[in-house]
Amino acid sequence: MESFYSLLQNNVLDAQPWRTREELRMRIVRWIERTYHRRRKQKALGKLTPIAYEEKLLTQALTLAA
């Protein structure tokens, strides 16, 4: 958990001064959804990142369709 907060601090909180809490909140949500979760390996996905898992599923689907 400490690494998550460290990454959040470095990549979002310290990136610029924020005018409103809402602006900061939206930026945190975007960072988590677009960056953090896409790079982080997920146990439920067989230790793959969400992007790697989607690519694996697409490859399997295309192979079955051929």
Rank of each mutant, 00 (worst) to 15 (best):
K41I: 10
Q16R: 15
V12N: 06
E22Q: 10
K56E: 12
L45W: 13
R30E: 04
Y5P: 03
I51H: 09
A66R: 10
A44P: 03
L64N: 11
M1E: 01
M26G: 12
V29D: 06
I28V: 15
I51S: 12
T59N: 11
W18M: 09
L57T: 03
S6P: 04
K56G: 05
Y53F: 08
A61F: 06
I28R: 14
P50T: 07
Y53S: 06
A61H: 09
R21I: 00
I32Q: 03
K56H: 15
E2N: 15
N11K: 13
L45P: 04
A66Y: 07
S6Q: 14
R34A: 13
N10H: 08
L8V: 05
Y36G: 01
M1N: 15
E55W: 07
R38Y: 15
R25A: 10
Y5W: 14
A66W: 07
L58I: 07
L62T: 01
L62C: 11
Q9D: 12
M1L: 13
T59V: 06
W31T: 08
L7I: 09
L62F: 05
A65E: 10
A66V: 04
E33S: 08
L8C: 03
V29K: 13
Q42W: 00
E33P: 00
Y53H: 12
Y36A: 01
L45H: 12
A65P: 02
R39M: 10
L45A: 04
A52M: 07
Q9P: 02
W18D: 11
A61V: 04
R30L: 01
N10D: 13
